[in-house]
């Protein structure tokens, strides 16, 4: 399993670039990113190459940032296949997004169980990226 950062941002021009600038200046690379918005605010979800450094830089700027465990799954197994395995085991997919390459990032209702059932079905699940 890998760590995702979730950052609360106002939904207005310049906020995302401000966040990205802070990460760049801290020497952090964004590997994957998804944005969910609701009215005047939203949450940026992302996977970075240095979680601790990223959290430090964002918190220092006063941003509301949290960490959560998600799955990084090799998408070449097929989205249908992956989602069917999870569905068959009563595991809900809360959200998903893709980055560069063929990895799909998923937040599910039970990460531990999902990790196990995917692995035993022969689907590649990454421990680091």
């Amino acid at each position: 399993m890998i760590t995702q950062l979730s950052v609360f941002l106002e939904n207005k021009p310049g906020r995302l670039s401000e966040m990205a600038r802070l990460l760049q200046e801290a020497g952090v690379n964004i590997k994957a990113m998804g944005i969910a918005e609701a009215g005047n605010h939203g949450i940026v979800r992302m996977v970075v190459d240095n979680v601790d450094l990223a959290v430090k830089a964002l918190q220092k700027a006063g941003m509301a940032v949290s960490k959560v465990d998600i799955l990084a799954i090799d998408m070449r197994a097929g989205v249908y296949q992956i989602s069917k395995i999870l569905g068959d085991h009563e595991i809900n997919i809360d959200y998903a997004y893709t980055g560069s390459g063929s990895i799909i990032f998923m937040k599910v209702s039970d990460e531990g169980k999902a990790y196990q059932v995917l692995k035993s079905a022969g689907v590649k699940v990454y421990d680091t990226i």
Binding site: S6, F8, A38, G39, H41, I43, A64
Partner: peptide, 18 residues
């Protein structure tokens, strides 16, 4: 202002709070 402690990955939580 949202408290930094209220940071979350779940958008619904923020909508419910609002």
């Amino acid at each position: 202002e949202l408290s930094p402690r209220a940071a979350t990955d779940v958008l619904t939580r923020l909508v419910i709070l609002q």
